[in-house]
């Protein structure tokens, strides 16, 4: 499907914003402003944006620990996200979740998850709500190649097929589960095919190509919305960074990392494509680049200025009702 000019500008803006967000989080982690464990998704922007642009607020999205890109693409407020990463009271989760548990239920973003594969059955449950209530939304579960080997994910795939639920299992195969290669850990070396063997339509796409992922997700979302049941999409991309910020990446060669940045950068690939095909003008893209820098600068400033949670917040939000 041909995307409109507005859609392409939006896609570029989102991808650039995610890239800036991740680069800045890296710096602020090193500066000591972002506590805890942080997992960055730079290199994977196209998949997050292609997914988010196919969804509305009535659709649900469950994401992994590497979820900043998906959060931004699903419409989460960027200042509130950065504040959450800083552990501040005005963050999306009041500073109680952090990077690994960031959520915005009002946007249908059901939360990042610190348990690999943990989101799969939760996404199936969200799809059950949609189907039981006769709504027309879909539920998307974003996972990594690491999650593809979890037994729980296999159970979720089967459940989705048995109950014929509007759920999309999106595997982002970014090359490594922590520090172990996909080629070693995935026995069949074919995530989409193995998942599809549970009885779902499945497709594998080049995750560095925004347009390819967008088309695959569009088809899967349409299938879900129209009562066609669950789908599998495997998007093959490559993370630029380590498993976590601070990972010395001893399992990667300098040549490979350089090659990835040069030839597998979805933002660069998108830009080249739209310029060569005269779909967008360079000046517009340059302007978006500047805006993205400003957006993230503002987010970091807002996070630095925000207050930490009051000590009384330690014991709130455990239950809805106390007795």
């Amino acid at each position: 499907m041909q995307l409109s000019r507005e859609d392409m500008l939006r896609a570029y803006r989102l991808m650039r914003t995610i890239r800036e967000f991740e680069e800045r989080v890296f710096v602020e982690f090193e500066n000591g402003n972002v506590p805890g464990f942080v997992h960055l998704c730079y290199g994977q922007e196209a998949t997050a944006v292609a997914t988010g642009m196919n969804l509305t607020d009535r659709d649900k999205l469950s994401i992994t620990h590497r979820g900043h890109g998906h959060s931004i693409a699903k419409g989460c407020d960027i200042n509130s996200m950065m504040q959450e990463l800083y552990g501040k009271s005005t963050g999306l989760c009041g500073g109680k979740g952090g990077s690994m548990h960031i959520a915005d239920l009002s946007r249908g973003m059901l939360g990042a998850n610190g348990i690999v594969g943990g989101t799969a059955p939760l996404a199936v449950g969200a799809a059950l709500t949609i189907k039981t209530r006769g709504e027309d939304g879909v539920s998307v579960c974003s996972m990594g190649d690491g999650a593809s080997n979890q037994g729980l994910v296999f159970e979720a795939l089967n459940m989705a097929v048995v109950l014929q639920l509007p759920v999309i299992f999106l595997y982002e195969n970014n090359g490594w589960g922590e520090g172990t290669s996909h080629d070693y850990a995935v026995g069949s070396k074919d995530i989409a095919g193995r998942a599809g063997a549970f009885g779902l339509p499945h497709v594998k796409v080049d995750g560095t190509d925004f347009f390819a992922v967008h088309e695959a997700m569009r088809e899967a979302v349409e299938r879900g919305r129209s009562g066609g049941g669950p789908s599998v999409v495997e998007s093959v991309n490559r993370r630029f960074g380590g498993h976590f910020v601070g990972d010395p990446m001893l399992y990667r060669t300098p040549d490979e990392r350089e090659h990835t940045r040069e030839f597998m950068d979805p933002v660069k690939i998108f830009r080249k494509k739209v310029l060569e095909s005269n779909l967008l003008e360079e000046a517009q893209l340059d302007e978006i680049d500047k805006e993205a820098v400003k957006t993230i600068e503002d987010a970091a400033d807002s996070a630095a200025a925000a207050a930490f949670p009051d000590p009384k917040e330690l014991e709130t939000d455990v239950y809805v009702s106390y007795y």
Partner: peptide, 27 residues
């Protein structure tokens, strides 16, 4: 539609119920 038999798949039952609860059902 509301009394749902599942496969023998405890983790998926619990996860499906948790995800459904988070999004508005009372499983």
């Amino acid at each position: 539609r509301r009394v749902i038999d599942t496969p023998i798949t405890e983790s998926a039952i619990m996860g499906t119920a948790a995800g459904a609860a988070l999004t508005g059902l009372r499983p």
